[in-house]
């Protein structure tokens, strides 16, 4: 049974850490519009706040003497030290990184950078990332299979697509985000990918 909860609605009589909820006087209340099912609560919209250990995609937005500042699709920025970077990075480059630490004003320190090849990118709401990946990566597998694209997703909601039918891949990701809170999504996405890739003369078409 699914129902919507709204800011101020009580969701538990005990204090619990649930995304989109907060604790006051030992009880848990919704802080966001969210879809509540028997065992969990999924908020419909949110903002990415850097967390230690997250794998993210950052976009180089500033080059400094000692390293780079990367935009994270977040109110907060991040920095990557030049010492940790083998590749020379340019403004606009997409880099897959891990968050080593987050300082007191929520700026992230990044490590283990992997420069991503030139491709197409899309910034989505980070609360939708689990839907795009799917259970055990199933949605992502479906997307790759039909588009022939190599798709990388950061926890912060930046989606990087390279090779294959990139425009179809991005279109499918947008559709997943738009319809993430509805049932039968996997079937509809599969259907759409089947129809469109057939219309475009099969998978693997190069137009990126």
């Amino acid at each position: 049974m699914k129902e919507l909860v709204f800011p101020g609605d009580k969701v538990a009589d005990t204090p619990q850490r649930i995304p989109g909820c907060y604790v006051e006087d030992g009880q848990t209340f919704a802080s966001n519009v969210a879809l509540r099912s028997d065992d969990h609560i999924v908020q419909l919209k949110g903002y990415y706040v850097p967390k230690t250990g997250d794998d993210i995609i950052g976009i180089v937005e500033e080059e400094r003497f000692s390293g780079y500042n990367l935009a994270l699709n977040s109110p907060y920025g991040s920095s990557l030290s030049a010492r940790d970077t083998r590749d020379e990075l340019k403004l606009g480059d997409a880099v897959y990184c891990k968050i080593l630490a987050v300082n007191e004003v929520k700026e992230a320190v990044l490590i283990e950078p992997q420069k991503l090849p030139t491709g197409s990118m899309l910034a989505i709401d980070s609360v939708k990332v689990p839907r795009v990946i799917g259970r055990n990566g199933s949605m992502l597998d479906t997307l790759s299979k039909f588009t022939g694209s190599h798709i990388t997703i950061g926890k912060n909601g930046i989606v990087h697509v390279e090779g294959g039918n990139t425009s179809l891949a991005l279109k499918a990701v947008e559709k997943i985000c738009r319809e993430s809170h509805t049932s039968g999504l996997t079937e509809r996405i599969t259907q759409m990918l089947e129809n469109e890739s057939r219309a475009n003369g099969g998978q693997g078409e190069q137009n990126g």
Binding site: P7, G8, Y22, F29, S31, N32, Q43, K45, Y47, V127
Partner: peptide, 11 residues
Amino acid sequence: LADAGIPLRDM
């Protein structure tokens, strides 16, 4: 604010 996904104690 709620529509934007900004967390609120209550509306």
